[in-house]
Design a binder for these strands. Sequence first.
DNA 1: CCGTAATACATCGAAGGCGATGTACAGTCT
DNA 2: AGACTGTACATCGCCTTCGATGTATTACGG
Lengths: 173, 173
Amino acid sequence: MLELAILGFLYDHSLHGYELRKRITALTGHVRPVAESTLYPAIKRLERAGLLARETQPGAVAAPRHVLSLTHAGRSELRHRLTEPARTDITDENRWFTVLAFLRHLDDPRAQAAVLRRRLDFLEEPASFFYDGDRPLRAEELDDPFRQGVLTIARATSRAELTWLRKTLAALD
Amino acid sequence: MLELAILGFLYDHSLHGYELRKRITALTGHVRPVAESTLYPAIKRLERAGLLARETQPGAVAAPRHVLSLTHAGRSELRHRLTEPARTDITDENRWFTVLAFLRHLDDPRAQAAVLRRRLDFLEEPASFFYDGDRPLRAEELDDPFRQGVLTIARATSRAELTWLRKTLAALD
DNA sequence: CCGTAATACATCGAAGGCGATGTACAGTCT
DNA sequence: AGACTGTACATCGCCTTCGATGTATTACGG
């Protein structure tokens, strides 16, 4: 997910690590902050994999900046990761939001629609959090107000997202 | 989060690992499946830490079952983790839902309310996903339909949860 | 003049999660 | 008879993440 965010932000502009970190923090940081000791090794990995290149610039303010840009392989890697997200990229909201944040980088509307449809299928699967054996329990059946809350919130999210997904899928056709 | 779920489920009943896994899968598995190779080492950790005990039973169907139960230290550890959740337990929805699923195990309504209030404070912080410099962008200002979706969905979730939080906090007083 | 914050990068070791793989038995399907 | 699925547990090694720590410079407030 971190790698996806790095590739996604660099797809538009070359950025140095520190700036990249600020953007990633704005995107997902209020939920899960990104430590520097996670970001810099991730950049190195992507660099070693040939997905991004760095160019050292004299430091404008402090230490020299390493301006990062995607290589051709990096650009196609991003498109690939967006076209065929892993299962958890679809199901985990944090990861899904990251996919959505960069999905515009796919230029084929049908590929974009296919990704949205995978999320739609997932949300339409009958799934609950609490079960009586195999039977999913509805909020009304729970005597626990906190578990009721989980179902209430999840249901509201799901409904809002389904509405948005159907509207956006219709617009993509 | 996994450890919290283990402690939470065992607080009510003793369970063997395989059954525990099914319950955890029901709770969070549709979003993030739990691998067996994650669960069993986690059980071992908690056991080594003196938080749970195992009792071997002859296998009803297959291999012998290890029935797990919380020790006294395990029970107070759960209450402690629920009373003072880490920052990401509050901000990350996956973790937050796990906290909510077991919050009833605190018997002091004021302690429960304090946890809900931390989530309330977090949701009331002005936070966005996309910024123009320091200024958070509203959904209407984005020309990207997918990023609009992120904001739309996040806002709907937030509103539903705020309503529920305020209602539940009022009931707890 | 000194402390602190911000800019900008980097490494190390510990811990956690995961896929792959293994063991063993019982029931079911072909 | 053999394959496969479900029950039930376990280990190994890889990878990612993270807190702690370090280095160096500029800017600002007291």
